[in-house]
Amino acid sequence: MKTGAADGGGAMETGGDVVMVGAGWIARQGYLPAFARLGWRATCFDTGDDPAGRAALGQAIDLARRSGAAPLCIVATPNASHLALAGAFLATGCRVLVEKPACLPWEVETAAAAALPLERLFVSTPFRFRPDVVRLIEAVAEGTVGEIRSVEATWRRRSGIPRPGSWYTARRLSGGGVLADLGPHLLDTAMTLLGWPEMTVLAARLTAAADAQTDGGASTWMAAGAADDLPLDVEIAADASWRDARGRDLRLHASWHDDVAADATVIEVAGTRGRLRLDTLFGFAPGPSLGRLSGTVDASIPLRRQPSADFARMLRLVQQGRAATGAQGLAVMRLIAGAYDRGGVVSPGTAATDVPR
């Protein structure tokens, strides 16, 4: 199988099991290696807001519309285009996997009102299905902590601001900073543990890049783009909390640039019979290849921390209809939208159409 980023705005290969739009970092490092690992044939289009990109998008939608030509369509483009492109591909009758976030925070109600066929929409959350997280979810489901009282999810990066000055750090294009970037992964795991209840935001504190020391904070694994000169107007740290109708709390801390020795992810569940803690690392920055459970269960779970392994596992579950659903992705974005509102963030109001690479 030939896989790789398309040249310019054209298609990489015609026909196959998957149609994918997007040729950025996540497409190159996550999806393309996963297709190779699975032996899937893929047709990948480099789309953008220019004549070549618009023509490529039209070709992708046309290919998806052909009966049986594309059982799965993947939207791996910048955040501002996720909802519109997911809707366009859903309209062809295909199953769709969209990169997180499922939509921008200010698009949540628009997405809900659109009555999208959410049974055919899936959202990219590869870490929920890693062996260490699965073991945590199983242990909680087995009653090891009793009735859940709270879940706390933390992800701290030492130097992990993705391409400062790019669309990743411009609110109009990304929807937000670290809360919109790392938050969906943490909240997907926490909400899975809680059983996906309705939640009310209690508090949110957002640390803007302008208010923090960001020198040396850029990620080392993502190369700078040719024109990364957009305003860095998003938060680089976020603390937020929510509560459900049963009085159970969900607390989140995420930071792109923190005073820590090394990147770390911690999920801690407190219940009526004790606590359970998972020390691990989400994402693909260098770090430990072992997840450690402690508390009511003690276990060490070896990990293969490779994008191709995590994405291939998730793609198999999408194929089986067992991955994170569109409804869950929108529920996560409703939590994030509430936190931004409570934190005093003013929405740009509309998504941008001119999304640079």
Rank of each mutant, 00 (worst) to 15 (best):
105 P>M: 05
343 G>V: 11
315 L>W: 05
43 T>Q: 15
289 S>K: 07
302 P>Q: 06
308 S>C: 08
63 L>Y: 04
90 L>K: 00
79 N>L: 11
299 A>H: 15
169 T>C: 12
259 D>I: 06
261 A>F: 02
105 P>W: 13
66 R>T: 14
332 V>T: 11
219 S>V: 07
208 A>Q: 05
184 P>V: 05
232 L>G: 03
140 V>M: 01
138 E>Q: 11
203 A>L: 05
48 G>I: 03
125 T>H: 11
265 T>N: 02
143 G>W: 05
80 A>S: 10
304 R>I: 13
69 A>D: 09
7 D>F: 04
292 R>Y: 11
208 A>L: 07
3 T>L: 05
47 T>A: 02
51 P>F: 06
13 E>S: 09
7 D>G: 06
90 L>Y: 03
335 L>E: 01
302 P>K: 08
20 M>Y: 12
331 A>K: 03
205 R>S: 13
134 V>G: 04
199 M>Q: 08
70 A>T: 12
177 G>Q: 11
319 Q>N: 09
193 L>F: 11
175 G>N: 01
112 A>Y: 10
320 Q>H: 11
252 L>Y: 03
65 R>L: 02
57 L>Q: 01
230 L>V: 08
301 I>V: 15
46 D>V: 07
103 C>I: 13
61 I>P: 00
170 A>D: 14
216 G>F: 04
264 A>V: 04
172 R>K: 14
222 M>T: 08
145 V>W: 02
129 F>I: 14
171 R>E: 02
11 A>K: 15
304 R>C: 14
192 T>E: 06
231 P>E: 15
335 L>Y: 01
266 V>Q: 02
333 M>S: 00
139 A>H: 02
246 R>V: 00
325 T>E: 03
143 G>T: 09
55 A>Q: 08
99 E>P: 15
224 A>E: 15
78 P>F: 10
167 W>D: 10
301 I>Q: 15
274 G>L: 07
216 G>L: 06
39 G>K: 15
235 E>V: 04
141 A>S: 06
277 R>V: 07
3 T>Q: 13
342 R>F: 00
173 L>N: 06
104 L>Y: 02
234 V>E: 01
76 A>W: 02
51 P>L: 12
344 G>V: 09
317 L>W: 13
45 F>H: 12
343 G>Q: 15
126 P>V: 06
63 L>H: 06
289 S>Y: 04
180 A>K: 04
338 G>D: 08
96 V>Y: 09
153 A>V: 13
164 P>C: 14
16 G>A: 10
176 G>P: 02
190 A>S: 10
282 F>K: 00
352 A>G: 15
20 M>G: 09
348 P>M: 02
167 W>F: 15
356 P>C: 08
342 R>Y: 07
92 T>I: 05
280 T>N: 05
131 P>I: 13
248 R>K: 03
187 L>R: 05
341 D>G: 06
306 Q>N: 10
42 A>F: 10
106 W>S: 05
113 A>L: 06
62 D>I: 03
328 Q>H: 10
186 L>Y: 02
292 R>F: 12
154 T>E: 10
223 A>C: 00
239 D>R: 09
50 D>M: 14
193 L>Q: 10
341 D>M: 07
243 R>L: 07
114 A>F: 09
89 F>E: 14
4 G>S: 03
114 A>Y: 12
122 F>Y: 10
69 A>F: 00
243 R>N: 01
125 T>I: 01
183 G>Q: 01
121 L>P: 06
235 E>M: 07
70 A>L: 12
121 L>V: 04
335 L>G: 00
203 A>F: 05
270 A>V: 12
